[in-house]
Design a protein around this nucleic acid. Structure first.
Length: 544
RNA sequence: GCGCCUGUAGCUCAAUUGGAUAGAGUGUUGGCCUCCGGAGCCAAAGGUUUCGGGUUCGACUCCCGACAGGCGCACCA
């Protein structure tokens, strides 16, 4: 519709003797009573034309085509908006298309098969996922689902590092707990991993090997066992909220494959490095960033920045059209250097889209729950899912913009009551299912696209129909702007409008024709809700 | 001190990316089931969009400056 109107506008403007300016918008007005689509073109053009916006709008409107089956009215309003309304018949006709598309309603080819890689979670296997990881996990997965629905080919990837200092400490933490279990007197350093899970892993080693591993170095068995168990745990947690990855990329492979040295050589060749105090520095400041950064320590070990660059070079070689990195706010400082390096190495860094999500504050009612991996008081994502359930967890994480510092109220998410927002939308679905069951019991069957939609004349029905028809464009814009929270908003509105409709009108009545039309309408609502839930990764309950 | 993010109703957050009268949930108050699910609906109340400037037809949105909070600012990841 928008593109139809754009071309119609362009033609009208041409006839009136103006060029179509790039800055005009054609969009749905946010206010009822302002038509179905609105354009600001008269206001944008007014200054250059030396005319009053409203007078100019008159000229343009006079040139617009008016198909009576399609256009119900064109009005000039406010400072010079041109508002266009479509006929009710037009909207109703679209309902048949919705029912025809069914499970595919909302899918589009907007992405044209472009290959997108989405990298997210990427937590190193040093401990269970926290609530904080949960936000990135749900966000990354929902972005992926949105892109899949809009015609992109998506690959989810998890990047991890099982080498380095952190992992050494992890292995040694397990070793010490193991010795402790064997009755040895140990001193457990404060900066070691304090969690209970370390003791569990140590206990596992003891049960399997007895005391035979007393002399084992931390880096061998202990580290390997810890990594394996923790990773299995992470996958299980993610799996329980419907998240799986196509690939897990091990940072370590960048060393064995020689990718790291390739990058160092390439940077050296571009004269973007220098040595100082025994370390190799990257000239980030020469590329417009704040300061230079060490990429190889004086010990000869690279800092994390270097493999990050090498990893992204690797991604580029795989030929993706778009690479999305989902990071937590604690990683903000790292990506400008990586992007600068990629650009300097000749890659199109605009293909890398870095999405930062802000931190989650966990609330227990009005109490802030302090999070620390060191201490025992952190809440794992696993515990949260066990308490609140997959649907509530996913919905809570996705219903806010990623840039908001969101409060996650555990008490609220746990509640199975009307205070919990996820139940509101799911309730609408369950209610519809119940209506359809009732109708079937009464011997009425939804006749689908064959119903006479012209019988749906009530304002609540028309409002609902219009809302449903916006689903595809909502999905598309959520996907392209990487803003999944707007889908949650939209579905909430669908549910609300359905409830209003339900309150005003009976679906199953003695009137055969009307019943058929309303059953079809309600079925359409159910389809939109269910398709939306599928994208959000939450269930569509037949009853609650 | 510097960088990124945030500041909107009592509370948690939206606002079609610069549009018309800033909206939801929750909480408070008062209504609505002889009828398809009351986990619902309706109504009232609640706002100088932190503050001060600027840009333009038009600003919660963009720019500058304060103030407040979060996250970073390693030869940790």
């Amino acid at each position: 519709m928008k593109s139809y109107l754009r071309t119609a506008l362009a033609e009208a403007l041409e006839k009136a003797g103006y060029d179509l300016p790039a800055a005009i918008t054609v969009e749905r007005p946010r206010q009822d009573g302002h038509g179905d689509l609105t354009t600001n073109c008269a206001m944008v053009l007014a200054k250059a034309a030396g005319k009053k916006p409203r007078a100019l709008a008159e000229e343009i409107v006079a040139q617009l085509p008016r198909d009576p089956d399609l256009i119900a009215g064109i009005e000039i309003a406010g400072p010079g908006f041109i508002n266009i309304s479509f006929t009710e018949t037009f909207h109703r006709r679209q309902l048949a298309l919705l029912l025809e598309a069914w499970d595919a309603f909302g899918r589009s080819a907007a992405g044209q098969g472009r290959r997108v890689q989405v990298e997210f979670v990427s937590a190193n296997p040093t401990g269970p996922l926290t609530v904080g990881h949960g936000r990135g996990a749900v966000f990354g997965d929902t972005i992926s689902r949105l892109l899949e629905w809009t015609g992109h080919v998506v690959e989810r990837e998890y990047y991890f590092n099982n080498a380095g200092r952190q992992m050494r400490i992890l292995g040694d933490s397990v070793r010490l707990r193991y010795l402790e279990l064997l009755g040895d007197a140990i001193e457990f350093p404060a900066d070691y991993y304090q969690g209970e899970y370390i003791k569990d892993i140590a206990r596992g080693v003891m049960e399997k090997h007895g005391d035979s591993k007393r002399g084992e170095p931390a880096e061998g068995l202990f580290k390997a066992v810890a990594e394996e168990e923790i990773f299995a745990d992470i996958r299980k947690t993610l799996g329980s909220i419907g998240i799986t990855f196509a690939s897990y990329f091990n940072e370590h492979s960048l060393y064995t494959d020689g990718k790291i040295t390739e990058v160092v050589d390439a940077l050296k060749a571009k004269d973007l490095t220098y040595e100082q105090e025994g370390a190799l520095w990257f000239k980030a400041s020469a590329l417009g960033n704040e300061k230079d950064k060490v990429i190889i320590k004086s010990t000869g070990e690279p800092t994390y920045r270097l493999p990050d660059i090498a990893y992204h070079c690797e991604k580029f070689k795989r030929g993706y059209d778009l690479m999305i990195d989902v990071f937590g706010a604690d990683h903000v400082a790292t990506y400008p250097d990586v992007l600068a390096a990629l650009k300097a190495l000749g890659y199109d860094s605009s293909k890398v889209k870095v999405l930062i999500h802000q931190f989650v504050t966990v609330m227990q009612g009005t109490e802030v729950v302090k999070m620390s991996t060191r201490k025992a008081n952190f809440i794992t994502l696993d515990e949260l899912i066990a308490d609140a359930g997959c649907d509530a967890v996913r919905y809570f994480f996705i219903m806010r913009t990623v840039s908001s510092h969101l409060n996650f109220d555990i008490e609220l998410a746990k509640q199975k009551s009307d205070e919990n927002p996820v139940y509101y939308v799911q309730y609408a679905h369950a209610r519809i299912s119940s209506i359809l069951r009732f109708a079937e019991k009464e011997g009425r069957v939804a006749s689908g696209a064959r119903a006479n939609f012209d019988l749906l004349v009530a304002p609540e029905e028309l409002a609902l129909i219009k809302q449903l028809l916006q689903f595809p464009e909502t999905v598309e814009s959520c996907a392209l702007t990487h803003e999944p929270h707007r889908l949650a908003d939209y579905l909430h509105d669908v549910a609300a409008m359905f409830h209003v409709f339900y309150h005003h009108h009976r679906v199953v009545t003695p009137d055969e024709g009307l019943t058929a039309a309303r059953l079809a309408l309600v079925q359409a609502v159910k389809i939109v809700l269910r398709n939306g839930f599928t994208i959000l990764g939450i269930s569509a309950p037949e009853q609650m």
